[in-house]
């Protein structure tokens, strides 16, 4: 419910049902050489009201695919439900999980099918490709998509994306003499960038906060390499295919 402002009461207005709202929050994904990290905060809000401190925006699709949805929460939940249903049907038909690039294409088709009554959601799909590389796909509400190394979306996109451009793509950074920027960062670095992005966004954006969920997809054959020490890491892997999926949760400020 939006608090009515004074001037809307002053003069008559045409009232029409608006089927959309905006539920705040921010999502983010970064691809590594052989891993992918997908994260989102757990606050759901409308206007100045916090509706709940825990409403997940990041969902496990398969052992190698994670989908983050941000925008109008009702559309987001319905969209994820339908994507999961399509993936289940695929599994029944082909006795395997759908590959990441195929899920990406499926999502574009499903979004574009609603071109003239769009799902008002920004999707970021992260995971492991068939060639074992970490991948991030980002979408606009009507299905335009591309594969990227990193992407932030949602309420604090304008705060987080420039930071990622600087830290992941090394924009506006000069490499030291005789060295070059690394093309891929290690998981440890990526995780601290993700956590820093969200703590910073929580400080500066009222719609971001409460909780943080970080999904980590690991490529086949990749060892944990220090991940054992991560506090509260929970494994979500179901299949024996080799790829592994983890989730870690952190508190964010609740104010």
């Amino acid at each position: 419910m939006i608090m009515p402002d004074m001037d809307s009461l002053a003069h008559p207005q045409e009232r029409r049902f608006n089927p959309y709202t905006e539920n705040g929050g921010t999502i983010l994904a970064i691809a590594g050489a052989d891993f992918s990290v997908i994260a989102g905060d757990t606050r759901q809000s409308e206007g100045y009201s916090i509706q709940t401190r825990y409403a997940p925006k990041v969902f496990r699709l398969t052992d190698r695919a994670v989908l983050a949805v941000n925008g109008f929460a009702a559309d987001g939940n319905m969209f994820v439900k339908k994507v999961k249903q399509r993936l289940e049907w695929y599994h029944h038909a082909h006795a395997k999980d759908m590959p990441l690039r195929a899920i990406a294409r499926l999502i574009q088709t499903m979004l574009y099918a609603r071109r003239f009554f769009p799902y008002y959601v920004y999707n970021i799909l992260g995971g492991i490709e068939e060639d074992g590389t970490g991948a991030v796909y980002s979408f606009d509400p009507v299905g335009s998509y591309e594969r990227e190394a990193c992407r932030a979306a949602g309420a604090a996109q304008s705060l987080v994306q420039p930071f990622l451009d600087n830290q992941i793509y090394f924009k506006n950074q000069e490499a030291a003499q005789g060295t070059s920027h690394p093309s891929h960062l290690p998981l440890e670095t990526v995780l601290s960038i993700v956590i820093d992005s969200f703590t910073s966004a929580t400080e500066r954006h009222i719609e971001v906060g409460d909780g943080l969920e970080i999904f980590i997809a690991l490529s086949k054959g990749r060892t944990l390499q220090g991940m054992e020490s991560i506090r509260g890491l929970q494994e979500l892997t179901v299949t024996e295919d080799g790829e592994r999926l983890f989730v870690m949760r952190r508190d964010l400020k609740k104010d």
Binding site: P19, Q51, A74
Partner: peptide, 25 residues
């Protein structure tokens, strides 16, 4: 849990609709 005319849902240990969302929550 909550649901409204837009299909928006959420759940929490305290919930309030309408003016209650501003005053009572």
């Amino acid at each position: 849990s909550y649901v409204d005319l837009l299909g928006t849902t959420y759940s929490a240990s305290t919930l309030a609709t309408g003016y209650g969302a501003f005053i009572a929550q």
